[in-house]
Simulated assay, not measured.
Amino acid sequence: MNPSYFHHHLLLIKKIFIQRGFNHNTFLYLGSNLKKNASHIFSSTVPKRSMNTETMKSWQATTYGLENLKLSSIDIPSILKPNEVLVKVCAASVNPLDVLMLDKAYGRSTFELLNYLDYFGDVLKTPNLPLTGGRDFVGEVVRVGHSVSNIEVNDKVWGVVMPHRQGSHAEYVVTSDFLISKKPENISDIEAASLPYIGMTAWNTVVSFGNLSQHHCKGLKIGLVGANGGIGTFLTQLFHLLIDAAGISTGDWCETLLMSRNSTIISLKSPLLTNIDENGALFGSMKTLAELVKVNTVVVPDGVKIKWSFFYPNKEALQNIGKLLEEGKIRPIIDKVFKMEDLLSAYEHVKSGRKQGKTVIDFTS
Results as ranks from 00 to 15, higher is better:
residue 6 F to A: 13
residue 3 P to G: 05
residue 276 I to V: 15
residue 57 K to T: 02
residue 26 T to G: 09
residue 346 A to T: 08
residue 281 A to K: 07
residue 302 D to I: 07
residue 84 E to P: 02
residue 82 P to N: 05
residue 253 W to P: 00
residue 169 H to Y: 01
residue 280 G to K: 07
residue 143 R to V: 02
residue 338 F to A: 08
residue 326 E to W: 04
residue 131 L to T: 01
residue 359 T to W: 03
residue 193 A to C: 06
residue 6 F to T: 12
residue 196 P to R: 12
residue 58 S to H: 00
residue 209 F to G: 00
residue 181 S to I: 11
residue 313 P to K: 00
residue 354 R to H: 15
residue 99 V to W: 04
residue 18 I to N: 02
residue 44 S to P: 01
residue 94 V to Y: 00
residue 10 L to G: 07
residue 197 Y to I: 03
residue 315 K to P: 03
residue 33 N to W: 03
residue 147 S to V: 08
residue 200 M to Q: 15
residue 2 N to C: 08
residue 163 P to R: 04
residue 216 H to C: 04
residue 4 S to C: 05
residue 295 V to S: 14
residue 149 S to M: 13
residue 8 H to W: 07
residue 248 I to D: 10
residue 284 G to H: 06
residue 192 A to E: 10
residue 323 K to G: 00
residue 344 L to K: 14
residue 227 A to I: 03
residue 263 S to F: 09
residue 56 M to P: 01
residue 167 G to K: 03
residue 59 W to E: 04
residue 324 L to S: 03
residue 351 K to Q: 06
residue 71 L to Q: 08
residue 311 F to M: 00
residue 269 K to I: 14
residue 150 N to P: 00
residue 134 G to D: 07
residue 9 H to C: 09
residue 57 K to L: 15
residue 214 Q to M: 08
residue 365 S to G: 12
residue 124 L to T: 15
residue 319 Q to E: 15
residue 150 N to E: 08
residue 134 G to Y: 09
residue 345 S to C: 09
residue 98 D to F: 06
residue 154 N to Q: 14
residue 14 K to D: 06
residue 69 L to V: 14
residue 95 N to K: 00
residue 87 V to T: 07
residue 241 L to Q: 09
residue 81 K to D: 10
residue 260 S to I: 09
residue 226 G to M: 08
residue 166 Q to M: 12
residue 20 R to A: 13
residue 94 V to A: 02
residue 139 G to D: 07
residue 46 V to N: 09
residue 121 G to Y: 05
residue 2 N to L: 13
residue 275 N to S: 10
residue 61 A to N: 01
residue 74 I to V: 15
residue 186 N to A: 03
residue 204 N to K: 07
residue 360 V to K: 08
residue 355 K to S: 11
residue 361 I to T: 02
residue 182 K to I: 13
residue 130 P to Y: 08
residue 235 L to W: 12
residue 229 G to R: 09
residue 343 L to R: 00
residue 107 G to W: 02
residue 266 I to V: 15
residue 228 N to P: 01
residue 32 S to W: 04
residue 327 E to Q: 13
residue 27 F to T: 10
residue 239 F to P: 01
residue 198 I to K: 11
residue 72 S to D: 14
residue 240 H to W: 03
residue 273 L to A: 06
residue 326 E to R: 08
residue 206 V to Q: 02
residue 39 S to D: 13
residue 298 V to Y: 13
residue 265 I to K: 04
residue 225 V to P: 04
residue 29 Y to R: 11
residue 143 R to W: 00
residue 59 W to K: 03
residue 286 M to R: 09
residue 119 Y to I: 06
residue 111 F to C: 10
